[in-house]
Design a protein around this nucleic acid. Structure first.
Length: 980
RNA sequence: GGACGAAUAGCUCAGUCGGUUAGAGCGUCUCGUUUACACCGAGAAGGCCGGGGGUUCGAGUCCCUCUUCGUCCACCA
């Protein structure tokens, strides 16, 4: 800056413009001294000089609009440089513990709308806790995402014409790791753009050595405790990923297909047929029976006989089993034990042979016979139907829609397949229920606990082995050439056997969720031996988990069970107190799922998912955060619309300008003051304080309490709504406007009030909009240049009241009520003007007939203010109309309104033309409305049941209301009469 | 089939213990550049609180029932 720049220089000193600077010298600390020219350091001198040199023309203008990009980037870097987000355990003060573990995004992922909402909420909780002096840890990390990552890397590989088998296991895993290292950090970098205050020094990845050790240790421990077993079972097989899946990774989708009705000839009665329906004729070669219900009279005589399976032609028995539904289809079910879960169970009961006709990739093998072998299952289906037709066995084909399980990742129908897998029988199921029932783990919204409990009540064993290479390899070795089913031939351990040449390790890896279910424990180093882990002891159980309800089974429930099982000594059952100490988190907040404006899920294929980084560029991270939170309803899904998110940006701009307005009025804060609330309060001159000052401080104290309660109860709606309403309605729309009408003598007091309000508002808003609040907090001089807003606690409304009382200002709710009456009065005056097309005129006179002396006094005291706010040149205040009020004949003619303070009438003048008919119509409508209210109120009070049973304050309220309504009614009636 | 949720202004949603005349934002209409802000301000219009029944002095709120929509779970070939 050119120090001889005159007025320009002076204004820049008050309100400099950092984002005009080139990025290289846009050091945030340079801005910190703008309020305090004497303290400006060499660096800010440099930047100022460069600024002038760079932008000689524009630099004289004070920016009217908030430009977030530079401010956000600069502050984020400064926070990182100052280690603002790093948390340390404080074992001496356990009540300072506050921890949130980020739901680890997939390394394959990029930031989407759901992440924005989810992480904004975590940031709010963390930053708020930090302000409150907690040792607030928000731990970031990523998930290795077994299937997703492996699929991505294999896809890349296929472009070079290779498969993972060409590379071999070690080389493939290395390639996947390289891919992860290159792409896996993107999402966390994107989170930084959002302003996420994670402790990046503690970043964890599920394949980190320590974390991996924890995962394997948990496996070994569960194995030793008898919760893990291996067995040949029907699993959900993904023919694309070529691995088994857990039930939770299968999603049911309706699928249109064909229902084939066919007939099989009965062996014992040639020429007679049994009619059978199926949707999967390609599995006929795998059929080893047909089944009917035991009590079905139609087929009772056939049980024990046989039918001819058409291809390959063979005799298969007719059996009876209760699983068959008599009323469905023909009541006859073909049994394919190898390729259907229910059929497998029936097969077990009847000792049926199992014929696998499908390959792992869902093509048919040679057992399917010459016509079908080698074909894909879908092609084979049509072909098989054709073969039936040729044999004269196909009776009917009809369109049919049924639900089919799809692989969540690969989005293809899964195939039930018999395979050798590892399973977990879940530990601590009962305790996991108790943890939620007894309120140790609290769900928000609470209703999700029903979904959680329902799943636990019907829990099935968990298939945890995956036929993949990318993940935690199962720590089990089998003795070469020996029977694997005999435990002595297995080596289950964190370390390989001493004679590795005699053993072969299980080739499978663990389900990703079998690593992420340890997230809260393993991120804090649970696997480290001994009792010296301060972090774990201090932060566990963590404070809150913020996630989507869609992973309540996949993740939330499993984490609770894992933690109950692993955190502490081995115990088969846990007492309530032990449950309380072993839970992974005390609160679970389920955020809604973000959908587009039409309510559809955000998806890449629909192209309805906006790019979060573009949104940040457009609205600023703070604007986006505010906008997103303000449209997020409490328990349900969120319909996203960019238009509505722009509100957040508008809010930031408004806040910026309110601060700018304060700044433009002058600088009462001595250089380097770093004023506390008490300092600011001490500048208030009680003699200069009026109703509106009281009211805004009262509203501020109320908002502080409301926000405190809202955040304590995870009610983010109320949090944002309260901020929004207080700032816009109370502060900007009314209070700041009244300031413009106040006498010059009160300036110091008015500046102090603005400082108190803005300072408190910034403190309250900071968790939601961290960057702009930090920027303004410094610009307005509310903290020392080297300090941060996060180090100040917003405190409570009571604290605020106390500090003000100590300075001689005792707040009371009556000021708010008075201000509301003044607002109603001003609004009525403005409305009269607008309704008569004179909104822009400022020379109009009003008659005011006060209801009573108090009303007259109130208006009299605020007369100058009201004249300016209403845009009137004069209010002619009549003597108070106590009692009956003036006769209609005594009323001046003119458009009028009845307010709770009295009657307001626009004074007619030669150049004031009034549409009498319209006015009459308006008053008539108003009269009718009031008449209804009076009637309803009177009827209620005439009801003895009401007056005898209703509580006193309701009764009193009803009487007061009726009186006021009645008086307005009388007034409007008189006005109408006066009108003619 | 079972469970859960939703239905309030044109749109998206608040409305906590049942209590005064049901609120907000956006949108719409009219007006406006005055000591910050047009990313702004002022004013207005706009509601059978999904339908029906019940409890109560009093119901958007509690109970029953029906309708529509959404989500999850389980699924019959």
């Amino acid at each position: 800056m050119d120090p001889s720049g005159g007025g320009t220089a002076k204004r820049l000193a008050l309100w400099p413009e950092p984002h005009f600077l080139p990025a290289s010298i846009r050091a945030p600390c340079a801005r910190l001294f703008h309020n305090f020219p004497s303290q400006r350091n060499a660096m800010s001198q440099d930047t100022a000089t460069t600024q002038n040199a760079d932008t000689p023309e524009t630099s004289s203008a004070i920016p009217k609009a908030y430009e977030p990009a530079a401010v956000e980037a600069a502050w984020y870097q400064r926070w990182l440089d100052s280690k603002c987000f790093q948390a340390s355990p404080d074992p001496a003060h356990p009540d300072r513990a506050h921890a949130i573990m980020i739901p680890p995004p997939n390394v394959t992922g990029v930031l989407h709308m759901g992440h924005l909402l989810n992480n904004t909420i975590q940031d709010i909780l963390t930053r708020r806790a930090r302000q409150q002096g907690k040792a607030a840890l928000w731990l970031p990390g990523t998930d290795h995402a077994g299937i997703a990552t492996q699929s991505r890397v294999e896809k890349e590989l296929r472009k070079t014409g290779k498969t993972r088998h060409d590379l071999g296991r070690d080389a493939f895993v290395a390639a996947a790791a390289a891919w992860r290292d290159k792409h896996g950090g993107i999402i966390l970098e994107q989170l930084q753009k959002l302003g996420a205050s994670c402790d990046w020094s503690r970043r964890v990845h599920t394949l980190d050595p320590g974390y991996s050790r924890a995962v394997l240790q948990a496996f070994v421990t569960l194995y030793d405790r008898g919760y893990i077993y291996r067995g040949k079972r029907m699993v959900n097989w993904c023919p694309v990923s070529l691995t088994g899946l857990s039930d939770e990774e299968v999603i049911m989708k309706p699928r249109r297909g064909i229902f084939y009705k066919m007939r099989y000839e009965i062996v014992e009665f040639p020429g007679q047929f049994l009619e059978i329906g199926t949707t999967r004729p390609e599995t006929i070669p795998g059929d080893t029976a047909v089944a009917v219900h035991p009590s079905d009279p139609r087929y009772a005589h056939l049980v024990g006989k046989h039918v001819w399976r058409p291809f390959p032609r063979a005799r298969i028995p007719i059996i009876a089993d209760n699983a068959v539904e008599k009323d469905f289809g023909t009541g006859v079910l073909k049994i394919t034990p190898a390729h259907d879960k229910a059929d497998f169970e029936i097969g077990q009961r009847h000792n049926l042979p199992i014929i696998e006709v499908l390959n792992p990739d869902a093509s048919l093998n040679e057992l399917a016979g010459p016509g079908l072998a080698g074909l894909d299952r879908d092609v084979a289906r049509t072909k098989a139907a054709g073969m039936l037709r040729e044999l004269g066995l196909l009776l009917k084909e009809e369109p049919y829609e049924n639900n089919v399980g799809y692989s969540e990742r690969a989005d293809v129908p899964i195939e039930p397949r018999l395979s050798e897998q590892w399973f977990i029988r879940y530990p601590k199921v009962e305790e996991a229920k108790q943890a939620v029932i007894n309120g140790h783990v609290h769900f928000h919204p609470e209703r999700w606990s029903k979904v959680y409990l329902h799943w636990l009540n019907n829990i099935q064993d968990w298939c945890i082995s995956r036929q993949l290479w990318w993940g935690h390899r199962i720590p089990v070795w089998y003795r070469n050439g020996a029977d694997r089913d005999i435990p002595a031939n297995r080596h289950v351990s964190l370390t390989p056997p001493a004679d590795p040449e005699n053993w072969t390790q299980d080739p499978d890896v663990l389900d990703t969720w079998a690593s992420s279910w340890l997230w809260c424990l393993a991120t804090l180093g649970w696997e480290k031996p001994g009792d010296t882990n301060d972090a774990l002891r201090f932060w566990f159980p963590t404070t809150a988990l913020v996630t989507g309800p869609d992973i309540i089974f996949l993740w939330v429930a499993r984490m609770i069970m894992a933690s109950l099982e692993f955190h502490g000594e081995e115990k088969t059952t846990l007492s309530d107190d032990e449950i309380r100490r072993r839970i992974p988190f005390r609160h679970v907040y389920f955020n809604g799922i973000i959908r587009d404006a039409q309510g559809r899920k955000m998806s890449k294929s629909l192209g309805n998912s906006p790019d979060p980084l573009e949104l940040i560029a457009k609205f600023g991270a703070d604007g986006l955060r505010i906008g997103l939170l303000s449209i997020a309803p409490k328990g349900t899904d969120i319909l996203f619309s960019e238009e509505r998110v722009s509100q957040g940006r508008n809010f930031c701009n408004k806040l910026w300008n309110a601060a700018r307005f304060r700044q433009m009025q002058g600088e009462e804060t001595p250089a380097g003051a770093n004023p506390s609330l008490a300092t600011l309060a001490s500048r208030l001159a009680p003699a200069d304080i009026d109703t509106d000052d009281h009211a805004i401080l009262e509203a501020l104290a109320n908002a502080t309490d409301t926000i405190h309660d809202a955040l304590e109860s995870y009610d983010f709606n109320t949090y944002t709504e309260t901020l929004y309403h207080f700032f816009r309605t109370h502060y900007c729309d009314w209070y700041l406007e009244t300031i413009k009408t106040r006498p010059a003598g009160a300036k110091t007091t008015l500046l102090a009030i603005q400082d108190i309000v803005l300072r408190q508002l910034l403190l309250l808003l900071h968790p939601l909009a961290p960057h702009i609040t930090e920027e303004l907090y410094h610009r307005l001089g509310y903290c020392a240049p080297e300090d941060f807003i996060q180090n100040t606690n917003p405190g409570t409304g009571a604290g605020l009241r106390q500090t003000l009382a100590a300075a001689g200002i005792v707040l009371s709710p009556s000021a708010l009520a008075e201000t509301n009456r003044l607002r109603e009065f001003v609004t009525a005056a403005r409305a009269i003007k607008t309704q008569n097309n004179m909104a822009a005129r400022r020379d109009l006179e009003f008659h005011f007939i006060p209801k009573d002396g108090a009303s007259a006094g109130l208006i009299q005291r605020h007369l100058g203010k009201i004249q300016k706010l209403a845009g009137a040149s004069r209010f002619d205040i009549a003597p108070p109309a106590d009692g009956e009020g003036p006769q209609a004949s005594a009323l001046p003619a003119g458009p009028a309104a009845a307010t709770s303070l009295g009657t307001l009438i626009l004074a007619l003048a030669p150049d004031v033309s009034v549409d009498t008919a319209a006015e009459q119509e308006r008053l008539t409508r108003e009269l009718a409305r009031l008449e209804k209210l009076v009637a309803a109120g009177a009827a209620r009070l005439a009801n003895a049941a009401f007056t005898s049973k209703a509580p006193a304050h309701i009764l009193e309220g009803a009487r007061a209301q009726l009186a006021e309504t009645q008086s307005k009614y009388d007034e409007v009636k008189r006005l109408l009469a006066a009108l003619g």
